[in-house]
Simulated assay, not measured.
Amino acid sequence: MSITVCLPGSAAKRVDEAVAEAMAPFASDGVGAVERDVWDSYRICGSVGLPVLAGHEGDLRLVADRPRWDGSLEPAVPGGCAGGPRGLIDFRDVLRAEAAGHAGRVWDRWQEVVSRHLAPDDESVFFYRYLAAGGARDSYETSREAADYRAQPAVRAWVDVAPRLARPDIADHFSFDWDPVGIGRRSREEYVATYEFSLLPLRNVLTLSGWWYELGDPPLHGACHGPLECVHEPNFGMEHPEVQSYLIALPADTLLVNVHCHV
């Protein structure tokens, strides 16, 4: 697995030592301070690393790959690097704008559909009504209640609209094979924020304050032995948009280093 290690700008002249200090609490074989073993070896590596802001590919502040165990280097990734100051890393503003723009259009279109019909009930209303009447979960889709849900005018109208807005290349969500009523449960800003980062790669992050965020797992704090003993508040939640927002908000001189770990 790979993780983006965040270091203060002052670490630029001692990258290897600073990365080692940040990674140390999470070492396996009983060496690290954290009870969960995370890695047993690692290397600063750009093969799945960080994209460089256009025009800055030759900047001397960028971090180069470290050699493999046999002294060889992996083939360079065009436009990529193993690390560098946050201000030199491309966070794909164009891709973020494309995803955010599409999410906004979906939200607006749903509001238009709902404005012409009675506000529809969420599918859960029909599903639990079916269960209360003795129905089995696995037969709901063919039930009268499911048909009643789909017969709501706004839901029926959305069936005609959705194919023109389908963008599964941005997110599976935009396949629209689910209950659309949920679109309106959030404000436009909240809905857009949920999908703004959909086109960006998922990243694991080790924050400046020593929190290890591996997507899909609760964060670990390098200053504490385990979650039960930790009294500190994580920097943010575990979801992809929150990780991306954290990275983007860092000061421009913050050093981001991609580390490839053997786990």
Rank of each mutant, 00 (worst) to 15 (best):
V257K: 05
V5T: 14
V113G: 10
P241V: 03
A162Y: 06
A166H: 02
L215H: 10
A157N: 12
A166E: 12
G134Q: 10
I170P: 04
G32C: 00
E229H: 08
H56P: 03
R96T: 12
D93Y: 02
R129A: 14
A157F: 04
V159N: 03
Y195V: 02
D179R: 12
A162W: 05
A97D: 11
V263I: 15
L208V: 03
F91I: 07
A24Q: 07
E123Q: 15
H56K: 06
V259Q: 04
P153E: 01
G216W: 10
L215Y: 02
S124I: 13
H225L: 02
E239G: 14
A132R: 10
G46M: 05
A146H: 15
L199D: 02
V15C: 11
V125L: 15
A171Y: 05
V161R: 00
D179K: 15
I248P: 06
R167D: 12
D121W: 11
L60T: 13
W178L: 12
F174C: 13
A154I: 01
R116N: 06
P234H: 07
N235K: 00
E214L: 00
L60A: 15
D179T: 13
H260Q: 14
E21D: 03
P75G: 06
Y42Q: 01
A27F: 11
G210F: 10
L131F: 01
L202Q: 05
W212E: 00
L50W: 01
H232W: 04
A100H: 11
N258K: 04
L247K: 11
H232C: 15
P180W: 06
P251L: 09
P168D: 13
V263S: 15
A162R: 11
I170G: 03
N204G: 00
G87A: 12
D122M: 04
R203K: 13
Y130D: 03
G80H: 11
R36S: 09
P8I: 07
F26G: 07
G101W: 09
D148G: 11
P234C: 12
D148R: 09
L206R: 08
K13G: 12
R167W: 06
R116T: 11
R61P: 02
D138P: 00
L247R: 03
A154S: 01
I44K: 04
R96C: 14
G79K: 04
E233F: 00
D59H: 05
N235W: 00
V155T: 09
D59F: 01
E239D: 15
T4W: 02
C230M: 08
G83Q: 06
D148K: 03
S143W: 01
T142A: 14
E196T: 14
P85Q: 09
P67G: 11
Y149Q: 05
D65A: 01
R96A: 14
F176P: 14
T142M: 05
R86V: 07
S187M: 13
A76D: 13
S28K: 14
P241L: 09
V125R: 15
R156I: 04
E190K: 00
P168Y: 10
F174S: 14
R109H: 08
D177C: 04
S10T: 05
H56F: 07
F91Q: 06
V181N: 02
